[in-house]
Amino acid sequence: MTPGASGPRPYADPYVAGVGLGLVLLASFVFAGRGLGASGAFGRVAAETVAAVAPEHAAARPPLAGYLADGAAQNGSPDAPSGAAPPGAPLSPSGWLVVEMLGVLVGGFASAVLAGRFRPGVTRGEGVGVSSRLSMAAAGGVAMGVGALLARGCTSGLALTGGALLAPGAWIFIASAFGAGYVAAPLVRGAWR
């Protein structure tokens, strides 16, 4: 089938997609001894970026220094700044997330292309212009960045992983995030008309 002629294929049934996602998470438990994550990869990349530009600035900020120490502490991890790792050395926790998120980029791209859903553009409702929508996405991103670091994880690393492992903090996070989302939803309803 040519995607251009038939248009984008519909998304998978949510329950089937959810079970598939759950099996990926389970495979991560079994083969990697940990769950999935996303925000930790953002933290590590942001910390490495600051460290490359202003090392002293990064070292003086405990959250950034923590991510930088993570690679270094995993003595000889392949993702450590020194980089001198024996072959087959394990990844640090945040290094694992960075590699995993690189995989997400590849897997998401492949899936979108194969389903005819790769469309350059901006996803928005009719009630909002392109620049407003991009500002909203960026502002939402900032709030999520701060929130995820404060909460020790995001939807992937805390809600999904911790939810499945019955960590109380994950369920607190889920309730709080969805609760706040529903409180804030009417404020942005106009954007999605």
Partner: peptide
Amino acid sequence: GGALFGVGFVVAGLCPGTSCVAAVSGRF
């Protein structure tokens, strides 16, 4: 953190993992 995240979630319409998927699907 969850409350702040939830507000960002609904304003952005994406979360950290899904925003990466959106980006590689061509969504700015």
